Simulated assay, not measured.
Amino acid sequence: MNDRQQSKSELAYQWIRERIRTREFEPGHRLVLSAIASELNVSTVPVREAIRQLEAEGQVTYEHNVGARVSTLNREVYFQTMETLAILEGYATALAVPHLTPTDLATAREFNDKMEALLDDFDAAAFTELNRQFHRVLFDRCPNRHLAEIVYTEWEKLDYLRVSTFRYIPDRAMESVAEHSRMLDLIAAGAEPSYLEAQMRDHRMNTMVKYRKKLDETDRLKDVDSFTKMSSN
């Protein structure tokens, strides 16, 4: 693929991905190559390449005799992404720790303080955005930029799958703030990066475990409710 074609493919990729991210293209939305190509004033070739890339990322699903559609929300994909992020972000943070400055730590504490201030009058969306900013401070100085970019990509995938996990498990927010504070104290005290890596990984996994438990409880309640309704008929 020449540079011009690659540039058009990247344009199409970014255009489609942004509409998936903002929910302009909802899960299940059919991606018509000719319509997108006409909108971007390109041929269908770069659009097809863009859709293939999005399919590889799990954001688009190809169905026989139907074509490409925006992937529907998939619970297991969410948990797999969380597990992946726990491992990658933990390592990226460990690599970044030796490069963090006192200003970085002060900025992270400021974000965490703002998160704590939201606990009494909880705003899940605002809390999630501050949480993202907090974590970004800790891993953004990772010298392995490729790894950092992968972490950013996994964050974006989580945004697509769920607007805010904390909306479903608001009681996890207080625990998360406390874990953030402890992590900052450990960094300031000069804890070993390998230990901090494990702490960050566990921090992520704790959220995932609590969310999975919440969903399982909800599913059981639905099953009981359905059984009760059938029994009463």
Rank of each mutant, 00 (worst) to 15 (best):
N41M: 04
P46H: 00
H203K: 13
S231V: 09
S9D: 02
R132S: 11
E49R: 11
L158P: 01
S164E: 12
R17P: 09
V42Y: 03
A148Q: 11
S176A: 14
L184M: 04
A108D: 06
I20G: 00
L161W: 06
E197D: 10
Y78V: 07
A198R: 04
E110H: 14
H29E: 15
L31N: 02
E63N: 07
Y13W: 11
Y211F: 03
I187W: 00
S226F: 08
M200R: 10
S181R: 14
K213P: 00
T61Q: 08
T207W: 00
M205F: 05
T128I: 09
Q80C: 04
L31H: 01
V47A: 01
T22E: 08
A173K: 05
D140F: 07
I20Q: 00
L40M: 07
L33Q: 14
A126L: 11
V60I: 12
K210P: 00
T207C: 01
G58P: 01
N112T: 14
S232N: 05
A50T: 06
I87V: 09
T101E: 06
Q53T: 14
N41R: 02
L158G: 01
E156C: 07
L105E: 10
L118Q: 09
L196V: 09
L40W: 04
S34T: 13
E149I: 13
V224R: 13
R48D: 03
R201V: 05
D171Q: 07
T207Q: 02
R136W: 15
L105R: 07
E26N: 13
E116K: 15
P27C: 02
